[in-house]
């Protein structure tokens, strides 16, 4: 394989698009894995979405019934809008905080970065169930630390759990806290790749830290910023475990996001067909979001 690839590329350089074998060799392993562990099961799932499969035994094809029912269910739209709201809140917050932290950690001026780094990293290692108990300890309505101080200072307990919007806000904060480690790692690697000479040139020109950040760091790490935004958007729209452990989609069902909706109305009631249909709709929504972001990103890059 390698030999043949090099034969092609061994000839004088051509335009990039003329290489076929080399890229094919490079992606071969992932193509095989993709076909085996994504396409194959996804096709099975897609077939289920047109049936009334319950997880056991035989099933009948029901055409587009599952999709039809899904689009007729108002709970689905509630979940969808709540999911979009969550993503809109979570992605920018996580982006800003992680980028700030990564910058401070890389800065040569800050002292004690090695200890601080562990503090920022640990939340990402915690299982959702532990994140849940930690944030309930902070924002529990009845016995939480924040309300403890609010009441000590003479205020009224804030309904962190029984008010739907505050409850969502707590999850946004908790999730940003927990996901910082991930985004921060990507940012650190990207910032370390920015050539130091750029900063030196800017320093000589008398640019302060803010100018340097906006005119050097931010443009140079743009490709990584794009990863963080796109992946965090997808992850946010699939968020489920943190909600389960923090407020169980509550109060009531007001903070049920799409995956929880799929899980509760589909899998837990043995409606695998319906759950599969909803999952593929979610996938289409995410695909649309991703493609829009890719197009916007290309426009920005080419500007």
């Amino acid at each position: 394989m390698t030999k043949r690839a090099s034969d092609v590329s061994g000839s004088p350089p051509r335009r990039r698009s003329t290489y076929t074998l080399a890229p094919l060799v490079l992606i071969a392993a992932n193509v095989v894995l993709f076909a085996l562990f994504f396409v194959w099961p996804a096709v099975i799932g897609l077939v289920y979405s047109f049936t009334n499969y319950t997880g056991v035994g035989a099933f009948q094809f029901v055409g587009l019934d599952n999709y039809h029912n899904l689009f007729g269910d108002s709970a689905f739209y509630d979940a969808l809008t709540r999911t979009l709201l969550y993503a809109v809140l979570f992605v920018p917050l996580n982006f800003a905080v992680s980028l700030l932290i990564a910058n401070v950690l890389v800065s040569k001026h800050a002292k004690g970065t090695s200890v601080a780094r562990i503090i920022f990293f640990i939340p990402w290692l915690l299982s959702p169930i532990v994140v849940g108990v930690l944030w309930r300890w902070l924002f529990g309505e009845n016995f939480g630390l924040v309300n403890y101080f609010v009441e000590k200072l003479g205020g009224h307990a804030i309904p962190w759990q029984s008010n739907a919007d505050l409850s969502l806000l707590v999850v946004v904060m908790a999730a940003s806290w927990a996901w910082t480690g991930f985004s921060m790692l990507l940012f650190i690697a990207a910032i370390k790749n920015v050539p130091v000479s750029y900063y030196e040139a800017a320093s000589l020109d008398g640019a302060g830290p803010w100018r340097q950040f906006f005119s050097i760091t931010l443009p140079s790490i743009a490709p990584t910023s794009f990863i963080v935004i796109l992946l965090n958007t997808i992850n946010a729209m699939k968020e489920y475990p943190v909600f389960v452990s923090l407020n169980n989609g509550g109060p009531g069902t007001s903070n049920n996001l799409l995956v929880q909706y799929i899980y509760q109305t589909g899998f837990q009631r043995g409606q695998i067909g319906y759950a599969s249909a909803a999952s593929f709709v979610l996938m289409l929504i995410l695909m649309a979001v991703a493609i829009i972001q890719l197009i916007v990103n290309r426009r920005v890059e080419n500007r």
Partner: peptide
Amino acid sequence: PKSVWTSGAD
């Protein structure tokens, strides 16, 4: 407390 049945408090 409402929080047990509405939002899964322990």
